[in-house]
Write a protein that binds this DNA or RNA. Structure first.
Lengths: 159, 159
DNA sequence: TCTGCTATGATATAACATAACATAAGAAAT
DNA sequence: ATTTCTTATGTTATGTTATATCATAGCAGA
């Protein structure tokens, strides 16, 4: 069984997230926490507007989109959430409870079912990429890669 | 002098574009051609709405956004134009007049000035990327990479 | 309690994109 | 030349993602 198929221990992840925020001198308020919970419970990345809907379903409380965007900004800053630039969607970081230093994330986005797998691409490939770019004088800001394709599961299914 | 600093021979690129379309059994209509000209004349990628504005300035004719999107779809299909997924902008292909088979494009996007450089990343790096992804069962649809950072020119400037 | 900071709410609007249906323009067939 | 078909474009409406701006609430420290 691959780790990605294992049920998440949301309580543990939230606890760890609290610690991360406290260490950074930031506050994981109830609403920020709930937004994170919505993302943790989702099988796919969500748009800010989808988060509003699910928040309402889960917590019986309406949250303005504007607030969701701000909470997402906060969670991204604390590296608890990633933004997928290619689709304008947000997902919880798959490695919140990992102790190791987080590398720049790389994503495999399934264009059929919308699922996303967060992977760690070998650092030497990224290094080689950077070397191949160096000659242009360009300095990379962030190396987040978003690769689109079809996931294993959807390849097996007839369509 | 690097080729990217050289003035484009727009006439020649348009002529070649006509050929590409004819070969594919498609028609590069006047309006499609004009949209391409707008992109060729731009220093940075443009959004569909910016294209509408410039089209009006250049050709004294109002074009509905809807039509621009369709023309962009056409030009992208003919590989004369690329879409930057991370910014929702469009730019002409830098290699229209090249005879060689076009590889999947890779882009260096300057987050300061918005300029974009279309580069060819060594094929073996892409191959290695694919290999590193293969174990996940994922099949890449397109390997277009959009890398954000600061371009050479903006690094030299004070801010 | 006052002050000030941070978080959140509310409203409006910008920016990017698509759906659905109507019309026009050009090629091919008769 | 007229009809017919197809492709291209126009029109209107709406959906989706994101930001600006100003107001308010809630909490911490002086």
């Amino acid at each position: 069984m691959k780790s990605s198929d294992m049920p998440l221990d949301i309580d543990q992840i939230i606890k760890k997230s609290q610690e991360v925020c406290t260490l950074a001198g930031a506050k994981l308020t109830d609403k920020r926490k709930n937004v994170l919970i919505v993302l943790l419970a989702a099988a796919t990345p969500l748009s800010a507007y989808e988060i509003v809907e699910r928040y309402k379903t889960h917590f019986h409380e309406a949250l303005p989109v504007m607030s969701v965007y701000r909470m997402l900004d906060f969670l991204i800053q604390e590296k608890l959430v990633h933004k997928l630039e290619t689709s304008g969607q947000y997902m919880s970081c798959a490695h919140i409870t990992c102790e190791h230093q987080h590398e720049t994330p790389q994503f495999l986005i399934c264009d059929r079912c919308g699922s996303v797998k967060e992977i760690g691409i070998k650092q030497h490939i990224i290094a080689e990429l950077e070397r191949s770019i160096q000659s242009t004088g360009f300095t990379l800001a962030h190396q987040q890669l978003e690769l689109h394709g079809i996931c294993e599961h959807c390849q097996i299914k007839p369509q």
